[in-house]
Nucleic acid binder design. Structure first.
Length: 817
RNA sequence: GCCCGGGUGGCGAAAUUGGCAGACGCGCAUCACUUAAGAUGAUGUGCCGCAAGGCUUGUGGGUUCGAGUCCCACCCCGGGCACCA
């Protein structure tokens, strides 16, 4: 009987859906399991084979858990707000919600076609007002707890997208999305105080089962540095300069101070600065170059001394000059540093160029005249001389009345966008009351329909042009007021979507507390590496906050996080519509079947590694399934007929391998193990039904449709008795109770795996010379005797006596001559 | 510059953690079936060599009876961070 995958796949997908086989149960007594992948952005480019990789991976894990007896939640939805849809609307005039509808329909059809065991009943869409009502509600909670505020800030303005970007969205001075230039603009923006959670975000990481590189990236991003703030009095007037340093122990070597060119004090001191024109020229110069150029690698240090301005080094009492230089950033630390050229590379370089004194105060392990940034004992440091630098950090700070201080690189999250396709920020601006939150009962603030989606030339959102929507009464004083026209960034909806899945249809709360308690936290979350410093950090912050205000049951939302590698186009380029190298799953499913596509995607290489698409690769998967099918249809016999011991051992080894490999996402080797089993079945062997049933079950997570069909043939065949060949019956449809996907996951029998014999490796001088099969537990002398009968071994020994023999029981013997 | 990955046949890749390097698959070759092609099946396939044998996991050194795996130095590729004080 031919393997008609199209018919089989359609049939089972329908049956599974009809029986609600994959719907999670909120009230089950079974242990819960929550697996999650990053919900897709339904782009107009359509779904490509790369999208499917994480879905298939998590599907395999979810299916295995179900078979292991868990009550599994494996949901999906759409991260539907976002720029590409809006840009498409600008270009075509088609409303974003219509485009979104069309795109999600396509994505849904395509994802369904691979037969993932998703609970479609809980499908969500972040651009649906029933959903974003709660995103807005959460914003109001941030506002209520002083974690949302509006501030005049320099934002990163993308010239091409016409949108303000969060710092996280600027990569190498360019817009992360479109790659064009970003310039600094000042604008009043809503901000979320993620910095208040810096320490919690860092602490929380420790207990989580996240990939090491993910943790490292988050740690780097938060960028904690511990040091001290020290005050330097100025000779001129009452002002002083506070610097931040991680090395207060080196203060005796501080020979000058440096301010960022845009530091406030430069303006305050203007009257005292003797070379003001020169200083102003330098300020203008630094303003004119982009941030990217300013920090460019190998850039020579520049700077200007503030003529006539002197500070007093509080440790030495020396009078030291004050400079401005662009190697000091206004937003780092206090925007001012004490320069210790002998012990800091940058200061060293600067001091050499401008011939400033270099005073060594830490014993160095390098040549004199070089810069030493390591630790050591203090020299020429007054009462601290001889103390270790580590010890001196605290002691010096205390002595000088400085403050121990922790700085973070992490900056507050710019939460405003002046764009259309996002959640309106639920705030009303009243001339007399200020920023007034929209009362919770008036949520959602629905995004109004507009004619023109283009951002306005003045940089305001297109919403600002909808007068009828903007003009409202102030909820507080009832006077005339206006709505906030900024919308939220596309990271908003995805910051809490995993919570909504617990109770996606709730009209009275973002989710019912009991249901959250039943499902949270996410047991296993898989997504892309590209979201590690953005989405993953934001959503952890969001959840930590909700936990603090008592809205969610766990502090951390995700127990375990893994990342998949991208699938690249042939040749290794990134897949994109503009490059025209996108591989769609549709044609492949038609030609080879969803199961073959699934198996190939999992087989092509390690799950966490990027890999280029090979159009021929799917043939191997397809052939494998054909072979499985043929065996299943023609060679299954009743248990009484035969029990091939070798094959039984092989199967149990395969069960062990597949069980373990799924847990480490080593899907490629799991499939290879199953291929070895099928090869082991040869072309003649009859397979007893009980063996085959176990194999079909371990295959089920990978190739769910063909496994279901074969399994159903078995159960129906079993109830009759031993017919050698399965009759050409119509496609069987049985109740979900007997689905292979609810059958118990097989366990292997350890006794069957340990074989009675082993291959003894024979080496001469560490070189492999042959093997011999021996019973397990054989002793050294016996092994030696047998090994010495081997012709090749004798030839290698060349009549010489071995002076030493290394014998590893049940493994190897090595003669050394 | 710093921090993570990684470098193995023509290609994608395995390697029970120090014990037969190249499993599994793609591709290729030969054969069978076929009028033929395709599909399928069988056999072979790291490199040099007719063979015996030798060589082989980015490079160079080391530890070890034995190294893809451990140690030291270096070279390339991918990712992240970066005048972060």
């Amino acid at each position: 009987m031919k393997y008609t995958f199209t018919a089989i796949e359609k049939k089972w997908q329908k049956e599974w859906e009809r029986h609600g086989l994959y719907e999670a149960n909120d009230r089950s007594k079974k242990k819960k399991w929550y697996s999650l992948f990053e919900f897709p952005y339904p782009s107009g480019d359509g779904l490509h084979v790369g999208h499917l990789r994480p879905y298939i991976g998590m599907d395999i894990i979810s299916r295995k858990r179900r078979m292991e007896g868990y009550n599994v939640l494996f949901p999906i939805g759409w991260d539907a707000f976002g720029l590409p849809t809006e840009n498409y609307a600008i270009k075509t005039g088609i409303a974003p919600h219509i485009v979104t509808k069309k795109n999600t329909d396509t994505f849904r059809r395509q994802i369904k076609s691979i037969g993932a065991s998703l609970d479609w009943d809980r499908e969500i869409n972040t651009s649906d007002s029933k959903y974003y009502r709660w995103t807005q509600w959460m914003f109001l909670q941030f506002l209520k707890h002083d974690l949302a505020y509006k501030a005049e800030i320099a934002i990163n303005w993308c010239l091409s997208c016409k949108i303000g970007l969060a710092n996280e969205e600027v990569v190498g001075g360019k817009c992360e999305r479109c790659g064009s230039d970003v310039e600094k603009r000042t604008k009043k923006q809503w901000m979320l105080k993620i910095t208040a959670y810096a320490e919690k975000l860092l602490d929380g990481l420790e207990k989580l089962d996240f990939l090491k590189e993910i943790k490292t990236q988050q740690i780097n991003w938060i960028g904690k540095s511990e040091g001290a703030e020290l005050k330097f009095a100025l000779e001129n007037g009452d002002e002083s300069i506070t610097v931040f340093t991680t090395r207060p122990d080196t203060i005796f070597g501080a020979t000058y101070l440096v301010l960022a060119p845009e530091h406030n004090l430069v303006y305050k001191l203007a009257l005292h600065i003797k070379n003001l024109p020169e200083v102003e020229a330098y300020q203008n110069f630094t303003r004119s170059i982009s941030e990217q150029d300013r920090v460019a690698e190998g850039k020579e240090k520049t700077g200007v001394v503030l003529g006539g301005i002197f500070a007093i080094n509080p440790a030495t009492g020396n009078r030291i000059p004050v400079w401005i230089a662009d190697y000091v950033m206004a937003h780092v630390g206090t925007g001012a540093i004490m320069a210790v050229p002998a012990h800091d590379e940058r200061d060293f370089e600067f001091a050499k160029k401008f011939q400033l004194p270099i005073v060594q105060v830490i014993k160095s392990e390098t040549v004199v005249g070089e810069c030493w940034t390591g630790e050591g004992s203090l020299i020429d440091s007054g009462g601290f001389t001889g103390m270790s630098s580590l010890e001196a950090r605290r002691a010096v700070t205390k002595f000088l009345g400085g403050k121990l201080k922790t700085h973070y690189k992490l900056r507050d999250w710019v939460f405003s966008r002046q764009r259309y396709w996002g959640e309106p920020i639920p705030v009303i601006i009243c001339a007399s009351c200020g920023y007034v939150p929209v009362p919770e009962k008036n949520l959602p603030v629905v995004l109004p329909k507009v004619k023109n989606y283009k951002p306005r030339e003045d940089g305001e959102s297109p919403l600002a042009s909808v007068a009828s929507w903007v003009k409202v009464k102030c909820p507080k004083c009832k006077g005339p007021a206006e709505r906030e026209t900024d919308t939220m960034p596309n990271w908003a909806g995805s910051s809490w979507y995993f919570l909504r899945y617990a109770d996606s249809k709730n009209k009275h709360a973002f989710a019912d507390t009991k249901k959250l308690e039943a499902w949270m936290p996410v047991d296993w979350y898989n997504g892309g590496m590209e979201h590690v410093t953005l989405h993953l950090l934001y959503s952890r912050f969001w959840n930590l906050f909700l936990y603090d205000i008592g809205e969610v049951p766990t502090a951390e939302p995700y127990k375990k996080r893994t990342a998949h590698g991208l699938i690249l186009a042939e040749g290794g380029a990134k897949m994109s519509k503009s490059k025209g190298n996108v591989v769609s799953p549709d044609g492949l499913i038609k030609e080879f079947g969803a199961d073959a596509l699934r198996v190939y995607e999992m087989f092509m290489g390690p799950f966490d590694q990027a890999i280029a698409w090979d159009p021929r690769g799917i043939l191997g998967a397809s052939r494998f399934l054909e072979r499985v099918w043929n065996i299943g249809m023609t060679r299954i016999v009743s248990d009484s007929e035969s029990a091939d011991k070798e094959l039984t051992t092989l199967l149990h080894k395969t069960i062990k391998k597949v069980s373990e490999d799924i847990e480490t996402m080593s899907f490629n080797t799991a499939i290879s193990a199953m291929m070895i089993f099928i090869n082991g079945c040869g072309s003649e062997k009859k397979i007893p039904v009980s063996l085959w049933s176990l194999f079909v079950r371990i295959l089920a997570p990978f190739a769910p449709h063909v496994a279901e069909e074969l399994y159903q043939k078995l159960t129906t065949k079993n109830s009759r008795q031993k017919t050698r060949k399965i009759s050409r019956s119509k496609l069987v449809v049985v109740s979900s109770k007997s689905s292979v996907h609810l059958a118990p996951w097989p366990s292997f029998n350890p006794k069957l795996i340990t074989e009675e014999t082993f291959e003894l490796i024979i080496q001469v001088n560490g070189k492999f010379r042959g093997t011999v099969t021996l019973p397990r537990g054989v002793g050294e002398s016996e092994a030696k005797e047998i090994a010495l009968k081997d012709e090749k071994v004798l030839r290698a020994l060349d009549g010489k006596q071995s002076k030493k023999v290394v014998f590893v029981p049940d493994r190897l013997i090595n003669f050394i001559i």
